[in-house]
Simulated assay, not measured.
Amino acid sequence: MTSWSDRIDEVWADASGEEVGDEIIARIDALAAERGEDDGRAEFERAGARDSAGRPEEAVELYRRALELGLDEDHRSQAIVQLASSLRNLGRFDEALALIEGERERAGAGPYRDAIAAVHALTLASAGRPAEGLSVALLALVPHLPRYHRSMTAYAREIADADT
C-alpha cells in the first residue's frame, strides 16, 4: 500500500502545471481527514491547497493551526515560508516580516534559507522598502556566485541603506 505522504505527493504532482482548484482541495482534504483534524501535517497540506488555489485568508488560519499542532522540522520551515507569503499577499507586511525574520534567525543555513530570503525580499518590496528587499535578494545570491563575494556583499549592504 502507498504511504500517506506518497499519496499527498501524487496529488501535488497531478496539480503541477495547472491551476489548483476545488478538485485538488477536495483530494487533499480527503487525505487529511484520514489523519484527523489534530494532525499538524494534515492541516499543513490543507493550508497549502488553499494557498495554491489563491485563498490566502483560509490558508493563514490553517498554517497557524498546523504550527500550533506541531510539524517536523522540514514542514515547519515550509509552513513559516508559506504563511509569511500568504500574509504578504494579504497586505499584512509587519506580521509577515516578523515571521520570516524570526525564521531566518532560527533556520540559519538550513535548506530553506534561499526560500526564506526570497519571501523576505518580496515582503520588504511590497511593504515599500524595495532597496532593502533587493539587498536581501542579493545577499542570498552571493554564496551561489563563482566570484565577487566581497564586492557584491558590500554593494548589497550599501543598497539597503537607500530605504532608511
Rank of each mutant, 00 (worst) to 15 (best):
A98E: 14
A32D: 04
Q82H: 13
A109R: 13
E37V: 06
L62F: 02
L67G: 03
S77E: 12
R64M: 06
I100C: 05
E43P: 04
A49K: 01
R104A: 12
V81D: 12
D38E: 11
G21C: 08
A47S: 11
Y112I: 05
E18Y: 06
E34S: 04
A66V: 10
G40A: 06
D39C: 10
E95F: 12
E103G: 00
A79T: 07
S52R: 14
E43C: 13
G110R: 12
R65I: 08
S77G: 15
I100Y: 01
A49Y: 02
I80P: 06
G40C: 09
A109Y: 09
I80L: 14
R65S: 09
D22I: 04
R76G: 14
D22C: 02
A59V: 02
L67I: 13
A98I: 10
A33T: 12
E43G: 03
D74H: 03
E34I: 03
A26Q: 12
A79Q: 00
N89F: 04
E103Q: 09
L87R: 04
A96M: 11
L97A: 08
G17M: 05
E58Y: 00
F44T: 09
D51T: 05
R92P: 04
G54F: 02
L99N: 02
I24L: 08
E101C: 15
R27E: 15
